[in-house]
């Protein structure tokens, strides 16, 4: 390379014609495609993203499993342990998709710090596409995580007991939830001052949120105030929905109805919660993005 190089010959840039609905979808897909492509180039990150939920499965199934009684079996019996694994897996699914938010937080804080968001913002692309594409890619990545997790579950004795169609609904609900929390994660990622903060800020709210739920223990044991919070925690309704859809133990003895509306209509409550959270956090995140700049 030197100043003696030839001139650039390509003719005038040829632009594509503008789609009827604008560029948002096109640009979002470009971002999603490259984000997914990039994540395949970091097998280490992918490995740890997959190994973490697997460790949780083994930990809960073999360490805590015996200590948490599930209605319907003699405490401490072999049937109880097997029942707990059936009960546990939807909880792990729920927890795992909730933690998808953290990846989004860190990813966006990094993109901000590296000046990539500045770069996007100086392009004549749709101003919301970078976020839509990013959240979309994050949700897609969860398909792989859920696959690995399902196989692990199968090995420790978890089963799909209520037909393939309901199982598909359960997985779709999990992906919707992953997509939803990713918007919250994106908002946090664009709000924190640097990636170091993003690493903790991305996780800190997820621990109470996932543990104050029915993901690992039935709600009956909780004090009343916490129980009400846990019942209206969308993770509880998500986990209960998937337990029902997979035909796994729900944590309620046969014939006993949950005492809260959110858990009597878990699928409906989950979908409504997702819509509300996206409705709040997507505009907030996009607004942050538009005024964001490298820090």
């Amino acid at each position: 390379m030197s100043s003696t190089m030839g001139t650039l010959r390509t003719s005038t840039p040829e632009a594509m014609s503008r789609p009827i609905l604008g560029w948002t979808l096109h640009d979002s897909l470009v971002i999603a495609r490259t984000t997914i492509l990039a994540s395949f180039r970091i097998p280490e990150a992918m490995f740890f993203q997959l190994i973490q939920p697997v460790i949780f499965v083994l930990l809960f199934a073999y360490v805590f499993g015996g200590a948490i009684p599930i209605p319907g079996a003699e405490p401490g019996s072999a049937a109880d342990a097997s029942l707990y694994r059936q009960y546990l897996m939807p909880g792990i699914f729920g927890q795992t998709v909730a933690f998808a938010a953290a990846a989004s937080t860190v990813g966006l804080a990094e993109a901000m710090q590296k000046g990539i968001i500045d770069r996007y913002r100086a392009l004549p692309m749709s101003q919301s596409a970078a976020l839509i594409g990013n959240t979309f890619a994050n949700a897609i990545r969860q398909i792989m995580v859920l696959t690995v997790l399902s196989i692990t579950g199968f090995i420790v004795g978890w089963r799909i007991n209520d037909g393939i169609l309901n199982a598909i609904y359960a997985y779709l609900l999990l992906l919707l939830f992953a997509y939803t929390v990713t918007w919250v994660g994106a908002f946090i990622g664009l709000s924190v001052p640097n990636t170091e903060t993003a690493n903790t800020a991305g996780l800190v709210w997820l621990f109470p949120l996932t543990f104050l739920s029915n993901a690992f223990v039935p709600l009956d044991g909780l004090p009343t105030v916490l129980r009400a919070f846990a019942a209206y925690n969308p993770i509880s309704s998500l986990v209960l929905s998937t337990r029902e859809l997979f035909g796994n133990p729900t944590g309620y003895p046969p014939g006993v109805e949950p005492e809260y509306w959110s858990l009597q209509n878990p699928v409906l409550y989950t979908v409504i919660s997702c819509a509300v959270v996206i409705g709040i956090f997507a505009p907030l995140a996009i607004r942050k993005y538009r005024s964001a700049s490298r820090r």
């Binding site: 840039p13 096109h26 470009v30 590296k114 000046g115 990539i116 692309m125």
Partner: peptide, 24 residues
């Protein structure tokens, strides 16, 4: 700061920017 996607190849980076400029 060279704001390219470090996990994409050179060619893929150029393609991404070209696509985002809405070029054919």
């Amino acid at each position: 700061y060279a704001a390219v996607d470090e996990f994409l190849t050179g060619r893929e980076n150029l393609k991404m920017f070209g696509d985002l400029y809405h070029l054919t």
